[in-house]
């Protein structure tokens, strides 16, 4: 499927544009994606950030980025990206900046901003056909404040604000469809546990002008309550169970980039995470597990 340079895992860069020394938690699934993003997009980047875990990537005077960074506010990173993109275009047009100095503008926010407070600014940026990348690291809760319910929290997960009973009783918002309804130039779901799929999508996006939207599921040892070393295994299971469908939207069509003949039961994914422990302990709760399984089955039936 790839028209880019990355054909297999060996083609991924072993030298990284994102420096070590960040204060992200050990085993951070979001950081894995950011690292891959930086490697594929190259050094000529400016990341525009909204309040979230990743705000702490760059703490004065330490930045891991070989490119540039601007923290704006939780609601308006996409507007900040618009301001920078506009400014770069103006400077190049007026001959005050060489085109060779141009940068890719990337919005980096968590699900708290992307699914909620920042949705309006992002919607408007897509409306304006802003030439930018948007990377939402979706760890399914307000991670930076201790993992409370966000609009991305899945049904049944326990969070700091759904700490008892059946866990979160709402549904995970379908941000992919919301963004797709805006008809951005490119839109995809990704996960760091599937780096080739991710690389192919980012490479494809690099050939496209306009809004290039990405949602990465970001397994979170701290908020999901599992051991840091399980981040990749859990990420792979999210895909194998069909809970995190890998797909893309281009030219009005949604295409699934990984369709499995047989999906692993969701139980295998759920049971590794403390946030779903109440589905298994003190005794198994088949009703709740089935409900989650049925939602996933229904999704894939419609694919």
């Amino acid at each position: 499927m790839s028209e880019g340079l990355i054909k297999n895992i060996k083609d991924l860069s072993v030298e990284h544009n994102l420096a070590p020394g960040t204060s992200m938690c050990a085993g951070c699934g979001a950081l894995e994606t950011v690292k891959l993003f930086c490697d594929i997009l190259g050094k000529n980047t400016v990341f525009v950030n909204a309040a979230g875990c990743m705000t702490l990537l760059a703490i004065y005077p330490f930045t891991p980025f070989s490119g540039s960074w601007l923290y704006t506010a939780m609601a308006s990173a996409s507007a900040g990206a618009q301001g920078i993109r506009d400014a770069l275009d103006i400077l190049i047009k007026k001959g005050r900046l060489s085109a060779s100095e141009d940068l890719k503008v990337i919005v980096l926010t968590g699900d708290g901003s992307a699914y909620g407070m920042g949705l309006s600014a992002t919607s408007a940026a897509i409306d304006r056909d802003l030439d930018f990348y948007y990377l939402c690291y979706d760890n399914e809760g307000y991670g930076n404040t201790g993992h409370q319910d966000s609009a991305a929290t899945p049904y049944g997960a326990r969070t700091a604000t759904s700490a008892s009973g059946a866990g979160f009783t709402g549904r995970k918002k379908d941000l992919f469809s919301i963004w797709a309804a805006h008809k951005p130039a490119y839109l995809a779901t990704i996960i760091a546990a599937e780096p080739l799929d991710l690389a192919h999508k980012v490479e494809k996006a690099m050939t496209i002008k306009g809004p290039k939207m990405f949602i990465t599921l970001a397994p979170c040892p701290t908020g999901w309550h599992y051991e840091p070393h399980q981040t990749v295994s859990i990420g792979k299971l999210a895909v194998k169970t069909g809970i995190w469908p890998l797909k893309e939207f281009k030219d009005g069509t949604v295409t699934h980039t990984k369709v499995l003949k047989e999906r692993v039961p969701v139980e295998e994914y759920l049971k590794l995470q403390g946030r779903f422990e109440h589905l298994f302990v003190p005794e198994k709760n088949p009703a709740l597990i089935n409900r989650i399984q049925t939602t996933v089955d229904q999704y894939w039936k419609d694919v």
């Binding site: 525009v48 601007l70 704006t72 506010a73 308006s76 507007a79 900040g80 990206a81 618009q82 301001g83 920078i84 506009d86 400014a87 770069l88 103006i90 400077l91 005050r96 900046l97 600014a121």
Partner: peptide, 11 residues
Amino acid sequence: TAAGSAATAGV
């Protein structure tokens, strides 16, 4: 936000 961001970019 865009006003400030564009100003950091030098216009």
